[in-house]
Design a protein around this nucleic acid. Structure first.
Lengths: 186, 186, 186, 186
DNA sequence: AATGAATGAGGCTTCATTCAT
DNA sequence: TATGAATGAAGCCTCATTCAT
């Protein structure tokens, strides 16, 4: 199980740095300190490796944000926790976050089972519904809201990265940007 | 100049459908009804073709939105025109819009001269500044605002595409989503 | 000894269906319900497995035809028994017969010790000699006769298989084809 | 068209010497004095190369025997010409003949269009029919006769090769073996 | 004897690019 | 400009075999 992890780790870094097609499986193996064939012992194809990596990372993120959101009591705080901790996680795991972004904008998304995607969105969608029913935010299609929030996070993340903000202004910007978002939704 | 256009057109479609690395230059040539080598008479390399395509498309979009924005008199209307006509153009030119998205999330962005990028953003940034100085929107880094607007457009575009909305609800959603954005920014 | 048999059985089927090079040792192991490495405990190499399989099968066929031929008293009946029971065996053991054919037309034949081959042919050659000396068949090189008989059997076998004959016409054809052969040789 | 021929020629030799799976496409290219990729410029896949080679060779053989058979007037002479010149051709083109044998006993046969096979047999089948209707040979399924003749040729060919016969005894054996065959069929 | 993870050489094929016509 | 045959590096993957458990 050790080598498998090494492979996933190496793959993550290389995929982000050079793209899916830009990184050869042989490079991944080499970087992981593993024989060429070992990669294919653990993952039938390069595609399978990519998908597996995506699912693993997505689950990590969801576990984290879910945990944080559940600590909150009122609805706005839950939404905020969801938003903010996603950003924190993203900034703490830039490779992982970039990779997820790469996937969702590539043809690979279509290889992820639809149920998997539904399952991933489920908690967030429920939270949005709760906020809508509680009168906290406007009545709009939940999918639409979910989309706006996700994209908003992505935009802020990108901005912070590009500007290379320090810890304090970073935290401030994140707080501020959530308030912008919340203002938009209420 | 005819064949050159055929090549660009074929390339656009294939790049969007199969990605940059997924489409061979030979396929592009074939699709364009052109000999294999002809492609390389017009574009020194595959990369040059990609960049050229991007710049052409970007210019088309900017010309269009600029023209629409200039028809408006007051600031909010200008911003709105910018926002809305970008979306309309995107929905009318899905291949082109997708392609631009693909580029901006790929390593190819780094091959686009920085001045080019600055030039592209210039008009939008000036408009944002104008709106900020006129007290219409909050004082925040212009880059940040620009980022938020751009990403917002992308999010709405994606949502519309996924939901396959009809003409009327589409128009309504676009209007509505601009109001959301504006609310956020003011 | 159980797993060894499973391996040989699986190998036989796969070799016939997909050829020697077309079937991976791992597939054989899998099909035999055995671990990958187990195969190499029983057979040092893939080649050894192939040769072993061939020798086993050849011995089975020879034992069977020998036994049948010995039940006969006069020479023609012996030759006939040899001919007919080879065909019956072949039709009862199509995988085994195919496999033998595959081997004899592949470079693997050269890996079978010459003495082994001599030994295998011995009984048949002696029978042919007996028939020749008894004046039943023409005086021609025994090897040549042996060759003609063998190939004749193969031809009839192939024809029966291709035409998917029923039991009765099959038996008739076999009898008839022996008479043709005999007519040729006398 | 030159390189294409070189490739076919090199492929023929190597396939016969080392089998289909035993010869790498890179070896073929190298042997043909051609770049690796050139092979795939002329043949989409290794399989296509194999099939193409088979069809080319088969056509050569058929052209030759057809031509010889048509020179004969009476039926037996036609059959004999067919038989004997096939053997001569085989002995003059051992690589080609071996290759054809290899194909017909491999899974590749199934990739040859059935009509193609029918077309190839057509002339021979018609000749057999003619001989049968003329009362020269026994009334048996034409396919069966065709099969027996073919296999007979193959047996004699193999025998001659193994024994490395000189020109004169070779010719004698061929004549003699035809008489054996004819005796069987009448 | 049995397992199955690990190996790495080698196979087939793709593809951007060149060049003689 | 246009063509398309030719190139050869590089990619993905397979597979016989080994070895620690």
């Amino acid at each position: 199980m050790d080598k498998r992890k090494d492979i996933l780790q190496a793959a993550l870094r290389l995929f982000v740095e050079q793209g899916f097609h830009g990184t050869a499986t042989s490079k991944i193996a080499q970087e992981a300190g593993v024989a060429n064939g070992t990669l294919f012992h653990h993952f039938k194809t390069k595609d399978e490796l990519i998908i597996r990596l995506y699912l693993d990372i997505k689950k990590q993120l969801l576990n984290f944000t879910e945990e944080q959101a559940q600590k909150q009591k009122n609805t706005k705080e839950k939404v905020k926790a969801h938003y903010i901790y996603t950003l924190y996680w993203a900034l703490d795991h830039p490779l992982e976050f970039h990779f997820m972004q790469q996937i969702s904008l590539s043809p690979f998304v279509n290889q992820i089972p639809l149920e998997e995607i539904q399952e991933q969105k489920k908690a967030a969608i429920e939270l949005i519904q709760e906020a809508m029913e509680g009168g906290y935010i406007q009545k709009l299609p939940t999918d639409f809201i979910h989309n706006l929030i996700g994209i908003h996070i992505f935009g802020v993340y990108q901005y912070i990265l590009k500007k290379e903000l320090e810890e304090t202004p970073k935290k401030e910007l994140i707080e501020q940007s959530f308030e912008l978002l919340w203002k938009m939704l209420t």
